[in-house]
Design a binder for these strands. Structure first.
Lengths: 212, 212
DNA sequence: CAAAAACTGGACCATCAAGTCCAGTTTTCT
DNA sequence: AGAAAACTGGACTTGATGGTCCAGTTTTTG
């Protein structure tokens, strides 16, 4: 979906610099958290100077908001093929498997790039919180699409609420990532997602059961 | 359960001071996060001096570990009556209702005291991570007890795995709190817990159905 | 009743943080 | 071409921050 951030006038070089800053910051934040990332770190990692940081962003918070968008884009992009096929229990399970495998590959180190950001910044200024809400909503959107399609195709009962289901899956995902990061094991994440998918399955019709 | 932290020799006054420090730090951390809480803040809030902080704790991390224990104790204590009766679907639902109501009373501001701590510190030193694991396990323990009792009493099918169920509930709880804090609404938490309880219910026998 | 241990106060230090400022260069647009 | 706007470098300011040190008081204990 490429969450566009309105940046009025930028030359080619300017745009490149801005991108470099955001990308570098995103990496640092993913590893050390927002509070653990200083602007000096950002300068070093992006090969820029203070004045450039403050040329493109009004302050650190502003930069972190840009990072939130970028993390969301990255996440969605990385899950692209799977996220577009969440319109069946089989599709959900493929997504789950991919996700869990990816966490295991990363040795379950580091939580959700968006989740940790939210945990750190959600109690801060309202503007940032609003951005975080939109990021979560954007990420949940493919889930919502898929579930809505399932219901419309009669694979889920009419009383299934795609909105509630999608949100519940996202909570399971976030909680799973938090516990998995703490325990350094994908088990909590796997169990959380299994529960969530079972929950969806409990609304499945015989038509979907046949497919699954 | 009162997670005891081995503190060898302490006079009555010393113990009081130590307690005061931990309690004050816990409050500050709950409001501003670990990184957002300075030792000067702690000194002011606990009416102590630097040397006292370093007399009772080797460094900030050490103090934060003590805070993790204390947060866990507090949480468990606050939920005491409900946590002890999680041995039926009805008990689980009462607990859910109490929890959601409490969050609404707090206007859904502030995440889970333990969850945010974990999110912030889980990637730090292993000693701290170990403490966080134990804290989560301690908190999950009453859940595990209740679910095990339910299965032993034949209210859950024999193939129900209390361990997996308890962990899944905790992930739903953590994810729900994160999203609820971000959206400033108890809805995600409520949906997450409903899903988790439905999941437990899917393992219920007719005996439990009769009680519920 | 000492001596040892537990406890306390607060000055001090080195470091690093976000944010400011201004002088200079490059690109864009007419 | 030439002015305006976009862009860049880096020194500098101000204020925290975690952590150290040591001299002094209170409590415990043999």
């Amino acid at each position: 979906m490429t969450t566009a951030q309105h940046t009025p006038k930028l030359t080619a070089r300017g745009a490149a610099t801005r991108t470099r800053i955001v990308a570098a910051t995103a990496n640092l934040v993913r590893e050390h958290g927002a509070a653990g990332t200083s602007l000096d770190d950002v300068m070093a990692a992006s090969r820029t100077s203070k004045s450039q940081l403050y040329h493109y962003f009004t302050n650190k918070e502003d930069l972190l908001r840009a990072v939130a968008w970028q993390q969301t884009d990255r996440i969605v992009e990385a899950q692209r093929p799977e996220l577009d096929q969440l319109d069946s229990l089989a599709g959900l399970r493929r997504w789950r498997d991919k996700f869990v495998a990816a966490r295991d590959e990363a040795q379950n180190v580091g939580g959700c790039p968006l989740g940790s950001l939210a945990s750190e910044l959600a109690d801060g200024d309202p503007q940032t919180r609003t951005v975080l809400q939109k990021c979560f909503t954007a990420w949940t959107s493919p889930l919502l699409m898929g579930l809505t399609a399932m219901r419309d195709q009669g694979r889920l009962r009419p009383d299934a609420d795609p909105d509630a289901l999608a949100e519940a899956i996202m909570t399971a995902l976030q909680g799973g990532l938090l516990l998995s990061n703490t325990y350094r094991s994908s088990r909590p994440l796997a169990r959380a997602l299994d529960m969530a998918i079972d929950h969806v399955a409990s609304f499945a019709t015989s038509r979907e059961a046949a497919v699954a």
